[in-house]
């Protein structure tokens, strides 16, 4: 195809879009509305991923030790647990350590004097090795029971518990993300093929005239494809913009989230955004192409 023809195709695309300006807005708004749902799901999973990454760091088991346990008893307990295969590491935190940490986190030393550190519990953080299968998890639970039966132990909490629930949520949403994605994708394709049909119907005279003055099939189809691609791109861009501006404008929700979870929701990464837009543009182009070539086939 020559440069001149390419230039003509682009000109015809823009002229055609300008001639049916309102229709353009309707299609773009439709696509934007549907894509916002998908973009919101993407944003949610993206942040859940970030959240669980943040939480993954930290002990797997937290063992609270009864007050009045002596230093030797601590050490015996720690040494015993350390012998278990699944245990990667265990670290003991005495009431004194806990106090120091508390002071550090409060950035003050007013607790230094006259504060009875025995009110703080001694804890043992146990980290299990990273490669734990489901079976091994069972074992860990069994060990958990063992630990809680040791005399000196007051309570055991599973550090993973919350994280596991978070994972479950993330998995669930990840599945839903694809279901929603597929649904939105199909709807977008449907909107485009209907729109192209309508468009071609409105323009059937134009198509007829174009083919009678020596326009090739490419020349007739290309403007429709470019139009579809542009609409899909603008639609998904608007969807991203809508979702992200909602995220950044609803202060209360964000503050609650960041207080509760010590986590600030962040916008979609650039890579994910670009993929989202490209994918949507591709969908628009494919749908337009399919509808247009079906229409032309039916005509001839």
């Amino acid at each position: 195809m020559s440069f001149g023809v390419l230039r003509s195709i682009l000109r015809q695309t823009l002229l055609g879009m300008a001639r049916r300006f309102t229709t353009q807005w309707v299609v773009i708004a439709c696509v934007a509305a549907m894509q916002s749902i998908f973009a919101a799901t993407l944003l949610l999973t993206f942040n859940l991923d970030l959240l669980s990454d943040q939480w993954e760091r930290g002990g797997d088991l937290l063992v609270f030790i009864k007050p009045g346990t002596t230093q030797t008893e601590y050490e015996q307990l720690s040494a015993m647990i350390q012998t278990w295969e699944e245990v990667e590491n265990s670290s003991l935190k005495t009431p004194r350590d806990a106090l120091k940490e508390l002071q550090k986190s409060l950035d003050t030393d007013f607790l230094e004097t006259g504060f009875d550190d025995s009110v703080l519990p001694a804890t043992l953080e146990i980290e299990f090795s990273a490669s734990t299968t489901d079976e091994e998890q069972l074992e860990i639970r069994a060990k958990l029971l063992q630990i809680s039966e040791i005399d000196e132990v007051e309570a055991v909490t599973e550090g993973r518990g919350l994280l596991a629930r978070l994972y479950e949520l993330r998995e669930l949403i990840a599945v839903w993300r694809w279901i929603i994605g597929a649904w939105v994708g199909l709807s977008v394709m449907f909107v485009f093929s209907q729109f192209v049909k309508l468009n071609l119907h409105q323009r059937r005279r134009e198509v007829e005239v174009l083919s009678s003055v020596g326009a090739t099939k490419t020349f007739i189809l290309a403007p429709l494809l470019i139009e579809g691609a542009l609409q899909a791109m603008l639609g998904s861009l608007s969807a991203l913009w809508i979702v992200e501006s909602v995220l950044s404008n609803q202060r209360v929700g964000s503050e609650m989230i960041s207080d509760l979870l010590l986590f600030t929701p962040s916008p979609l990464s650039l890579r994910l955004s670009v993929t989202f837009i490209l994918f949507s543009t591709l969908l628009g182009t494919i749908a337009s192409w399919r509808a247009a070539s079906l229409f032309l086939k039916g005509r001839e």
């Binding site: 020559s2 440069f3 001149g4 023809v5 390419l6 230039r7 003509s8 000109r11 015809q12 005239v209 174009l210 003055v213 020596g214 326009a215 090739t216 020349f219």
Partner: peptide, 11 residues
């Protein structure tokens, strides 16, 4: 202009 547009002549 249309027949010339279809063959990519300049505006």
């Amino acid at each position: 202009c249309l027949p010339l547009e279809a063959i990519g002549r300049s505006r």
